[in-house]
């Protein structure tokens, strides 16, 4: 078995006295693509935010290649470089061009040479089909284009694990595909990915493992083949039934 990139042990997260995550244990290995699905409000987005220490946790621990990651910790900026995250609302910096959005962190955080970073940014932009948009501002781009820029902005930091938080949920249907294709290519490159999505067909196509969450817990895990054809738990069955349209 390959190396553990991310390990969660008994993670509990509360918000305003309400338990959002109720004892999460999870291990993600090098090169694995895991997809988290579940009803809205089940805590899947919060889980990603906790992994990236955007939210403090109450109990348990989150280990990144063996090192604990905690909100407010001193070594957080350097540990976070190993984690890339893309959000539902893209969150590009609106006052910067695409190129500036992408190169800001490599230059200011990783202190890399400007020319080298810009060359790499141009290569990555070409890979996602946006070579001509380097000097555009985010407001001049479509949702799908913005999300691809956000993915490039994450990739250039050379993270070990990629987190995707419902990255197609805010997109018009015709733009979903272009973003999912980029993610599929990343999966084929052997990247370690943890994806939260509502796109069931996509989850089935990309995942090595499906993680089904409900009510702050991991209810069921399995390969896409097992999970989508023969879900073991009643809650997973009910959840999947909502996506079927046969009468």
């Amino acid at each position: 078995m390959s190396e553990e990139v991310l390990t969660l042990r008994g993670v509990v997260k509360e918000f305003d006295g309400k338990t959002i995550l109720d004892g999460i244990d999870l291990t993600i290995r090098q090169g694995e693509v895991a997809v988290i699905i579940g009803p809205s409000g089940c805590g899947k987005s919060t889980l990603l935010r906790c992994i990236n220490a955007l939210e403090p946790i109450r109990e348990g621990e989150i280990l990144l290649q063996g090192e604990p990651i905690r909100a407010g910790a001193k070594n957080l900026p350097s540990l976070r470089q190993k984690i890339g995250m893309v959000f539902q609302s893209y969150d590009l910096y609106p006052h910067m061009t695409v190129m500036e959005n992408i190169t800001l962190s490599p230059r200011k955080v990783q202190k890399r040479d400007r020319r080298e970073v810009e060359r790499e940014a141009a290569e990555l932009l070409a890979r996602v089909g946006l070579s001509d948009k380097a000097e555009s501002y985010p407001r001049q781009l479509s949702g799908g284009q913005k999300q691809r820029v956000a993915i490039v902005r994450m990739l250039i930091m050379q993270p070990e694990i990629l987190l995707f938080d419902e990255v197609t949920a805010a997109l018009d249907p015709e733009m979903v595909r272009e973003v999912l294709d980029v993610m599929l290519e990343l999966a084929h490159q052997g990247r370690t990915m943890l994806i939260v999505t509502h796109e069931m067909a996509f989850a089935q196509a990309i995942a090595h493992r499906i993680i089904f969450m409900d009510d702050g817990r991991i209810v069921e895990e399995g390969t896409p083949g097992q999970f989508f054809t023969k879900p073991q738990t009643k809650r997973a069955q009910e959840f999947l039934d909502r996506f079927r349209f046969d009468t």
Partner: peptide
């Protein structure tokens, strides 16, 4: 709020976040 999250996820320090992201906007 998302701008702070994005900046944090991209490893900017608090000072860098204010200087490059929050103040200019």
């Amino acid at each position: 709020r998302h701008q702070y999250d994005a900046a944090a996820a991209l490893c900017l320090s608090e000072r860098q976040t204010y200087y490059y992201i929050i103040f200019p906007q």
